[in-house]
Amino acid sequence: MSNTITKTNFNFPGQQSVYKGKVRDVYSLENDRLVMIASDRLSAFDVVMPKGIPYKGQILNQIATKMMEKTSDIVPNWLEATPDPNVAIGKKCEPFKVEMVIRGYMSGHAAREYKAGKRELCGVAMPEGLKENDKFPEPIITPATKAEHGDHDEDISKENIIKRGIVSEEDYVQLEQYTRELFERGTEIAAKQDLILVDTKYEFGKTPGGKIVLIDEIHTPDSSRYFYKKGYEERQKNKEAQKQLSKEFVRQWLISNGFQGLEGQQVPEMSDDYIESVSERYIELYENITGEKFVKADVSNIEDRIRTNVESYLKDH
């Protein structure tokens, strides 16, 4: 098994505080700067799995970086540099406490709700007569409130977001517009790779100057679901499962082993072989999404590598 990074405990120059999320650890520095480290932790059903996945952090960080570059003409983003395969450095922002989830197809959570008889998600109507993985007539935006400290994110309607003052109406209108434009661009990028961008989530923040920027990750297999375009129609016609690129395969494995993040459920044991197979799937995701060969970083001592690269960058910038 390769080395993985599942915990970080750095003390960078000018460091003020640390926030540890499900997958990323964010170090706040002076001068409104953030160092975001993509760990190899794997989260599913809002639960962090006990073992790390080799190269997962590198894969997420590098896909997100490429996608930020490809969408910076639509919306400015927080990113300044990636001095290490697992690290992004950028501007500190005040995050909006909602995730902007957009769905082009009835899959995943939407399909589970639909199957349970619901025809409305986050105040948005879902048409009758759809089957799992059918395309929606128009992409739908189904926001979720950002959970604090590992609790489940919650579906919420646009009306409730505005009524509860989570986001102002003016800002929310802008977030929706950015979300639709980013999804359109993501769909175009995916199509060039013979993929379908099924659904995804975007997170936004505000700079101290009040500008809305894109933060966190974008169009990665952790934040998005992709289908292979080839054979999609045929599989739908035959009511077969779609061939997909996302971490849904992990969720399905967990469900089949009796785990859905519900109270009292135990995370099933993940063997080294299974962990290795998940790592290989993530590499496959990287290569299919970017169209580039994945180059494994040196993982002999990931912590030392990160510390050296980040400190060297901060010294020069």
Rank of each mutant, 00 (worst) to 15 (best):
D73Q: 06
M100P: 02
V87Q: 01
E113L: 15
T71N: 02
V75M: 00
P83F: 10
Q58T: 15
V124T: 13
R112G: 10
A64M: 13
I102D: 06
K97M: 08
P54E: 00
K97Y: 13
Y114F: 12
P85L: 06
A125Y: 03
G108R: 05
Q58P: 01
L130K: 08
N77W: 03
G52N: 09
G52M: 06
E80T: 09
S72T: 13
K97W: 08
L79S: 01
K56W: 02
E113R: 10
R119Y: 13
K118W: 08
E128T: 12
K66I: 14
I53H: 00
T71L: 03
E120M: 14
A116H: 10
V87I: 07
A81M: 14
I53C: 06
I89H: 01
Y105Q: 14
G57T: 12
F96T: 05
C93N: 14
L60T: 02
I89T: 11
K91I: 15
H109G: 14
K131S: 11
A116K: 08
L121H: 13
I53E: 00
G117L: 09
V75I: 15
K91M: 09
A88D: 01
S107R: 05
E80L: 14
I89C: 08
M67G: 00
A116V: 08
K66Q: 13
H109N: 15
K91H: 12
A110V: 15
K131N: 01
D84I: 14
A110M: 13
P83I: 08
K56Q: 05
N61A: 10
Y55F: 15
S72N: 12
V98P: 00
K91F: 12
A116R: 15
N86C: 13
T65Q: 07
K92L: 14
R112W: 12
K91L: 15
K66R: 15
H109S: 12
Q58R: 05
W78S: 10
P127N: 04
V87F: 06
V101S: 01
P95I: 11
I63H: 03
L130R: 10
K56Y: 04
K66A: 10
E80Y: 07
G90F: 09
A111D: 06
P76G: 11
P85A: 12
H109P: 02
L79K: 11
I89E: 07
L121V: 11
M68I: 12
P54Q: 03
F96E: 05
S107V: 10
I89V: 13
P76F: 00
Y55D: 02
A116T: 09
K70M: 12
E99C: 03
P127W: 06
K97C: 10
S107M: 14
A110W: 02
H109K: 03
G129L: 09
V101W: 03
I59A: 04
T71G: 00
G52T: 07
R119G: 06
M100F: 05
N61L: 09
L79A: 06
G129N: 14
L130T: 09
E120K: 04
S72Y: 06
G123E: 03
G123A: 05
C122A: 15
P83H: 05
N86H: 14
G123P: 07
